[in-house]
Design a protein around this nucleic acid. Structure first.
Length: 301
DNA sequence: GCATGTCAAGTTGTG
DNA sequence: CACAACTTGACATGC
């Protein structure tokens, strides 16, 4: 069975995640900062539980958790520890409820750290910041029961081989809780599946195959071949494979095919995926509306 | 109440 | 060399 995944937020449902910025926090004293952050973390966890309940009711089998679930957690000035928040006990209780709910209802959770997390960077500071952020997401993953932390391979710096070598070296600096969850995804400007598959076998991490990115930046593999190679990387770690799907905003003849459309054109859904046991994250601007429509479209087939 | 500007972070490609 | 694009809404501010 294909399980479809909703990414991070809702378009029409009133489930909303809250945020803040460092500049707002910096205008407060530490006590006020922690009060605000405690409120936001607690609210976001309640919202996450609601999001999972929505997924369950609507037969959506996966949910991607937004990175700033705990806002500004790793920020150098205003970062904090959960233990220092007023609602710490409540926060842990909510995490356990979420973890139990996703387990009982078989909802797969994943995380997708932002583009500035670059393990292949030649800059020590960038790598250090990346590791800090990944460790935060690892903690989150452990608390909530997410099994995927998916990132891109980063920049090429004029030499992809060397960049991927740095990725490999820096991977060894990650904790067990991050390393066992980390996956790498082909992107639409630098790294194709062909570029990443050797890294995946050397490091022993799975490939998240984004077919839209592959259509924007192709290699010598067709979709069926890339799918099969991707499946092998997941088989090695005995876990359910993960794919991404989107459609271009103005069709394949449009100006910028990288932009995501509101909905998924069902003809963009690879035939090769139809009979797989796999997760397919739906990256579409209409969010839950797009997932529901694609679910119905696939049911028709 | 509504419009507008801001938000920690990286890298690439364009002009 | 500077800057927009990537992707993107939520929030705070100002009128």
């Amino acid at each position: 069975m294909i399980r479809l995944g909703l990414c991070c937020i809702f378009r029409e449902e009133s489930i909303r995640f809250r945020q803040t910025t460092a500049s707002v926090l910096n205008r407060m004293n530490r006590r006020e900062q922690l009060e605000k952050l405690s409120d936001l973390c607690t609210a976001n966890l309640s919202n996450l539980l609601e999001a999972l309940q929505w997924c369950h009711i609507n037969r959506i089998g996966a949910f991607r958790i937004l990175s700033p679930l705990f806002p500004r957690f790793t920020h150098p000035d205003v970062g904090y520890q959960l233990e220092n928040l007023e609602h710490y006990t409540e926060i842990l209780r909510l995490c356990r409820s979420i973890n139990r709910f996703r387990q009982e209802n078989a909802i797969r959770l994943s995380l997708h750290p932002d583009q500035f997390n670059v393990l292949s960077s030649p800059h020590e500071l960038v790598v250090a910041n990346t590791i800090r952020e990944l460790e935060y997401q690892g903690r989150l993953a452990e608390l909530l029961g997410a099994d995927v932390i998916n990132i891109h391979a980063g920049g090429a710096y004029g030499n992809k081989k060397e960049a991927l070598m740095r990725f490999q070296v820096n991977f060894d600096l990650l904790s067990e809780r991050v390393a066992t969850r980390l996956t790498v995804e082909n992107d639409d400007r630098v790294y194709t599946p062909t570029d990443l598959l050797p890294l995946c076998s050397t490091v022993g991490i799975p490939l998240v195959y984004d077919v839209h990115h592959h259509r924007c930046l192709s290699d010598n593999l067709d979709i069926g071949e890339a799918t099969n190679h991707c499946l092998e990387t997941w088989k090695r770690v005995k876990r359910e494979p993960c794919f991404h799907i989107s459609s271009p905003q103005d069709g394949w003849q449009g100006q910028n095919i990288r932009n995501h459309a509101d909905y998924i054109d069902p003809t963009d859904f690879p035939e090769e995926w139809m009979r797989l046991d796999a997760t397919v994250d739906v990256e579409a601007k209409a969010k839950e509306l797009a997932v529901l429509r694609l679910r119905d479209d696939l049911d028709q087939w």
